[in-house]
């Protein structure tokens, strides 16, 4: 592959990663934390006093946000190597 094609392919793969992770991001916050929360509140997390929707908005979404960034870092570092665009030290 030409460097130009390789870079384009890398960026396309990057965009796909972003799209999937942001879909999860929107689902846990705007989905579970907000629009679905009243319905989720009919359920409780077993063994706790948390209503599920309330917990997603107050706790769960934040944990998922942290995870998403670390997953992103892990995938991108692999992509960098796979497409030979990693930085030299």
């Amino acid at each position: 592959m030409q460097p130009g094609d390789r870079h384009r392919a890398y960026f396309k793969a990057n965009l796909k990663v972003i799209a999937v992770l942001l879909a999860i991001w929107a689902f846990v916050s705007f989905g579970c934390g907000i629009f679905l929360a009243p319905w989720l509140n009919e359920f409780r997390i077993p063994g706790t006093g948390f209503k599920l929707g309330f917990w997603m908005a107050n706790q769960g979404s934040i944990y998922v946000f942290v995870l998403l960034i670390f997953i992103y870092v892990w995938i991108m570092n692999r992509l960098d190597r796979a497409y030979g665009v990693e930085e030299s030290d």
Partner: peptide
Amino acid sequence: GADGAVYLMGWTGGYVLLALLLAP
């Protein structure tokens, strides 16, 4: 009460956007 979650999600969720769309 529950409405306060706008601050919790709003002020943390922005970091996902920052990490994926801007910082690198």
